[in-house]
């Protein structure tokens, strides 16, 4: 059980500092969660910390690949608008 960071990540460092498991590492091209260390914050916090502070939609997914912060959920900018402006490129 672990969350995963996608290519949408902008390497902003916010998640690293709040992860109680020190499971996130700086890496290129984007930060990564060490699967063996991440426990999805279970038993420690109600919400996974990385996904609660991450400002970038679609940057964090669960083990099924579902976005914890789907497009539009953080900025309120509708997905259609993001696509119109070429700002939505999906994530791996």
């Amino acid at each position: 059980m672990a969350l995963k960071i996608t290519s949408a990540c902008r390497n902003c460092w916010a998640c690293i500092d709040v992860c109680p498991q020190q499971a996130i590492v700086e890496a290129s091209p984007h930060f990564v969660i060490k699967a063996e260390q991440c426990n999805e914050c279970l038993g420690v916090h109600d919400d996974p910390q990385c996904a609660s502070i991450c400002p970038i939609e679609a940057a964090i997914v669960d083990s099924l690949g579902a976005y914890l912060n789907p497009p539009g959920s953080l900025t309120g900018i509708p997905l259609a608008r993001l696509i119109d402006f070429g700002l939505w490129h999906g994530a791996d």
């Binding site: 902008r10 390497n11 902003c12 916010a14 690293i16 502070i53 400002p55 970038i56």
Partner: peptide
Amino acid sequence: APACNIQCNYCNRK
């Protein structure tokens, strides 16, 4: 200081 803890509507972290 790269990380932020709020979102402003005039900011895009990218």
